[in-house]
Design a protein around this nucleic acid. Structure first.
Lengths: 117, 117
DNA sequence: CGCATATTCAACCAAACGGTTGACGATCCG
DNA sequence: CGGATCGTCAACCGTTTGGTTGAATATGCG
């Protein structure tokens, strides 16, 4: 019945592979948000965003708590940490490279659908 | 003609989302390998592995160099580093958590198709 | 040359993905 | 109550993915 559960890293990396979902995570980094507010900057239907959030929740990257009629989305860094730790296993590269990160942010935020003007 | 190039992180994370491909990367961590040798531990066709390697190469995670009639596959940690750096941006979690990494290795190598008996 | 080895190409397939629309169940509020 | 808002569900659609086979293309070797 239940298909064999995929490895947790499968779902985490698959979730991270979509730019919309990464943008959502970036937004949630600022603060918890309601589904509608998450959807607002994107040029796609609310239902599509709802699905993206379900994927993120399934990967454990966010949690959702319904309070009243609004469902709040909260970043859950633990799953991300697991993936990060996996990558460090391909180590011999520096644990934290803040220079590279700053360079990355420039290019990442440059064409990010959620942060572009 | 050429569809708009996806964000580099899209292809990197998508490549990492498949357990076969992660296993291949783990193998290449040991040493460079020929395509046939990469394919050997897996219960799937050589052509399938060839495709997986193409995905990894497209993501920049490996490079392939043909010497004679055998094509050598080499791990290319730079793309992985970029992804790692992105994740650290969701920071406030410790740069390196070796305890977590050891725990991860136990579970990861436990059911890894490339390392299982 | 002629055969074996190494790798990819091409066509095909089922399943998953990312999106749409429209109906629907909850919940708040006047 | 009744209307508006919040969010998901269900069906559908085109594209991508992960795999298969079988033929094709190099290249090495006796």
């Amino acid at each position: 019945m239940t298909p064999p559960a995929p490895h947790p890293l499968d779902t985490v990396f698959a979730a991270l592979a979509d730019p919309t979902r990464r943008a959502i995570l970036t937004m949630l980094l600022e603060d918890d948000m309601a589904v509608t507010d998450v959807a607002h900057p994107f040029a796609m239907s609310l239902a599509a965003i709802s699905k993206h959030l379900a994927v993120l929740a399934d990967a454990g990257l966010i949690t959702q708590e319904k309070r009243g009629r609004v469902k709040w989305c909260k970043l859950e860094p633990d799953a991300l940490r697991a993936a990060s730790v996996w990558m460090q296993g391909f180590g011999q590269f520096d644990p934290v490279d803040l220079d590279a990160f700053e360079r990355f942010l420039e290019t990442e935020l440059g064409d990010d659908p959620a942060t572009a003007p």
